[in-house]
Every structure is written in C-alpha cells, then in structure tokens.
Design a protein around this nucleic acid. Sequence first.
DNA 1: GTGAGTGCAAATGCTTTGCAGACGT
DNA 2: ACGTCTGCAAAGCATTTGCACTCAC
Lengths: 159, 159
Amino acid sequence: MGHHHAVSSHGHTHDSPGDPSTLRASGRRLTRQRQAIWNALLSEPDRHLSAEDVAERVRAQLPGVNPSTVYRTLDLLVAEGLVLRTDLGGDRAYYEPAHDHPHHHLVCERCGAVVHVHDETLGSLAERIERTTGFAMGSRELSIFGLCPACRSGRSTTE
Amino acid sequence: MGHHHAVSSHGHTHDSPGDPSTLRASGRRLTRQRQAIWNALLSEPDRHLSAEDVAERVRAQLPGVNPSTVYRTLDLLVAEGLVLRTDLGGDRAYYEPAHDHPHHHLVCERCGAVVHVHDETLGSLAERIERTTGFAMGSRELSIFGLCPACRSGRSTTE
DNA sequence: GTGAGTGCAAATGCTTTGCAGACGT
DNA sequence: ACGTCTGCAAAGCATTTGCACTCAC
C-alpha cells in the first residue's frame, strides 16, 4: 500500500483553485519557491501529494529547494486556506489545492487509491451524530477506508 | 488539545474484553509484561491510551518495562485481535481493548474528548458510498472531528 | 535597505530494529 | 534446553527549529 493516487469518482472539474498571489494581500511574499510549490500542487490535480512528493516536483522545476521550505510553505498555504491538508491514514500528511465544495476521502486499504466523495453523500450523518451525542461535526474532511472496485474484484490496479 | 479522554456517550457496558491467555493458544508466551500491558489497557476502559500512556501505567505495576516491549506487545495484541489501534488524528496511535460491536470515534477538535458512536449511527453510509463509488467500506473505525457539547457551549472541560 | 523567507544542519517525537541475555514453556 | 521475549541502545522517518544569509518588497 501507500500509493494514494486518486481515481476521480465521477469526473468533477476543479473548483476555482485560488491563487497564491493572494499571499501578497496578507502581507506575505511571493517567492520563486512558493510559486513552484503551488505549481507542483496543481500539476497533479487528482492526486494527493505528500510533502516529499511536492519537494520532488518542485526540484524538477527549481532545483535546490529545501524540504524545510516545502514544509513551511505548505503550512503557510494551509493557514491561508489555499491548500488542504489531509490525513489519509498513513504516517505522512497529504496536500491538495483547496476546492469550493467539501468532500471526503475513500482510501483503498489494498492499493491505496483515493477517491473523493461529495459531502452530501454522508446524508444525515451530521444530524444523527448531533442527535445521539451532541457533537457538532466540524468541517474537517473524513477519511473512510475500504476496498476500491478494482481490488474488490480480485486484482488491484497497482499491485 | 491532545487529551483524548473518553466521555462515554451513553454508558455502554464493555463487551467481552477477551483474554490474553488466548495468546498461548496461538503459540505465544504469556509474560508478566504482556499481562501488565493488558491490565493497563483494561484499567481505564473508557479512555484511549497512547503507547506511552500504557507504558506509564505498566511501570506503576511492574517497573522497568521498556517502551519497545510496550510497542511490540501492542502490535502483537492488535495482530491477535485483542486490541484495537485507533488513529485519532494526532501524531500518535491510541489503543483500546477490542469490543464486540464496532464503533467510531468522535473527537473534539478543541478539548480532545473522544466519544464512541455505534456503527448504526452511520445509517446507510456504506450503501451510499458503494452506490456512488463502488467502494466497499471496510471494518476500520472512523474518526470524525467536531466540537463536543461542552466546547460548543463555551468553555471546555479541560482547558 | 529591511525584514520575511530560505538553506542548512541539528533537533524532535514517535516508533522500529539489532543484538545479547533472560525466562516461559 | 529451546526458542521466544525482553531490555538496551541505536537507528528510522516525517517533521520542526535555530540561525546566518538572501532576496522580494
């Protein structure tokens, strides 16, 4: 396991990816590195990239960028709301450009494929939870584990 | 944040905790350390304990137990199905004795409180997911983040 | 020119591992 | 006695941090 390549569930188009130049609006500087990191995140729109994945792609375009810079910038982009950090169950964090409509992640326990599901697929989950426990579900994405269609039917795409 | 003390949602009694002596059946040895670790897990039935939490409690009863042993034993107990490992969103794993009825975790993003919700609270989630994506939800527990009643109403229990 | 941002190297925190000795069976 | 487990110390790995230098503004 450990691939985390996304298989778009039903081809949803990207929703207003946002722009790193909004950084300047918040008084931050738009450096070469930050642009490259943003580009890296956009380069593979349907995949979730780990910090190292990002660093790899960034270095292809701008060699010598340090991992620390990638980590620091990802944190920054998350804080600015331009990037979403996701916990896909593994030991590292994954990042994707922020989107308009909230979604959740289906992670295949066998091949690592990640699929997005729209928030509405959860149905009345939030209400049920509030009713039974009083908890108010936050906006954080859910990671749900299971078997993707390919792995269910025998052979995985990536094994 | 970072407490992870459980607030039982509605006092459900523990369901057949299992017994570490089943270890012997699988050819493993029942050592002092393993018993102490098992006891530690049972000692606070409504809390999720980190490996370090376990180590702490174990040392109170049997000093000198090494963290490695705790990690190794927890892995073993998980492999044997006696213990459940849970990812509560933080950087460490949490453990609890395995139970009969599957449940999921509600984690308060503010105070760290953890509540169990029965599997049935999810409603038709598995079917919805299968219908829209073809994924078969596995048996793995869900971690859902939000705000607990106390934190919603202003002040947290533990802040 | 000035301070935010970067590179570098070292530190951190959880967890794993190699190995020699200890103990459950 | 045999081989599994344990303790210890060191290694791993993702991530963070301190500090001097650099570059976006």
